[in-house]
């Protein structure tokens, strides 16, 4: 169980604190995937930064279970995997080295079993033939799949994804969604997916949350019965979509995809 309890986060701009998240709370069951939507500047990426241990909170606590015990969330005690927007592969490491890096950072022994697991994970993501290549020798879709392989190989307690599919073209993106869902169903890590795409949120989130830009908290949280279904096309789906569109509509009249 991941419990975010009443956290507030602010940035300092010219010495003055600018609040981004205010009294934000969220609970997520083990092995769930929630898609977080919100207009730009609402604090989606800030949430990822906080959970990844990059940004301290002004107040509040975040705890997550490790082997059944709830502990304050910390990269040293929890296995946290992040897939940022550009995937964050280290350009000077090969695909193999990139995939094994988080295990190395946790000082875990990389034995034959782990190597076999690396091969199997990469095979299921169709990147097993690219293990000795450097990231600049890969296409956008391949970079994406390597980032997924690196994240899942860690067997993370928490998987954080910050608009990881946004730079892909439509066809590559739906292939990447498919591959993500396949491997996610096998390993089922607790996952927070931040996205600005409603389509992506419906396809990849078992639940959908909407952040409130004005108040810096949670505006809405709903179950998503259309998880894993591409273009459901039924009335219930359109009804939910309309609700989300209403919630996400900025005051200046713009909208989300």
């Amino acid at each position: 169980m991941l419990t975010i309890d009443d956290i507030s986060v602010s940035y300092r701009i010219k010495g003055k604190p600018v609040p981004v998240l205010k009294n934000f709370s969220l609970q997520l069951k083990q092995g769930e995937v929630i898609a977080v939507l919100g207009s730009s500047g609402c604090g989606k990426s800030t949430l990822i930064q906080v959970l990844a241990g990059m940004l301290p909170t002004d107040s509040g606590t975040v705890t997550a279970a490790v082997r059944g015990v709830n502990l304050p969330l910390n990269p040293k005690t929890h296995k946290i995997a992040v897939i940022p927007q550009n995937c964050g592969l280290l350009p000077w490491k090969t695909v193999r080295q990139n995939c094994l890096l988080p295990l190395q950072l946790h000082n875990l022994r990389i034995d034959d079993k782990k190597y076999a697991e690396l091969e199997a994970t990469c095979r299921s993501l169709k990147v097993d033939s690219l293990l000795e290549r450097y990231p600049n020798e890969l296409s956008g879709g391949q970079v994406q799949r390597v980032a997924l392989a690196r994240a899942f190989l860690q067997e993370p307690d928490l998987l954080l994804m910050d608009e990881p599919f946004s730079s892909l073209d439509t066809i590559t993106r739906s292939d990447a969604w498919e591959l993500f869902l396949n491997i996610w169903r096998q390993k089922q890590p607790t996952t927070i997916l931040v996205t600005h795409s409603m389509e992506e949120a419906f396809y990849l989130g078992k639940e959908i949350a909407v952040l409130d830009k004005e108040k810096g908290g949670l505006l809405e949280r709903m179950d998503n019965p259309y998880f894993g279904i591409q273009e459901p096309g039924c009335e219930g789906f359109f009804h939910r979509k309309r609700i989300l569109q209403g919630l996400l509509k900025p005051k200046d009249g713009g909208g989300l995809s």
Binding site: V82, L90, W92, L101, P102, L105, H106, Q154
Partner: peptide, 28 residues
């Protein structure tokens, strides 16, 4: 690229590991 710090810090990297795996190869 700040995302390199994000993926390594979240994976539990110490300052020494960040210097070794990110800073030194980046300056080379």
């Amino acid at each position: 690229d700040p995302s390199l710090y994000l993926v390594t810090v979240s994976a539990g990297a110490s300052k020494r590991q960040i210097i070794w795996h990110i800073t030194l190869p980046a300056i080379l």
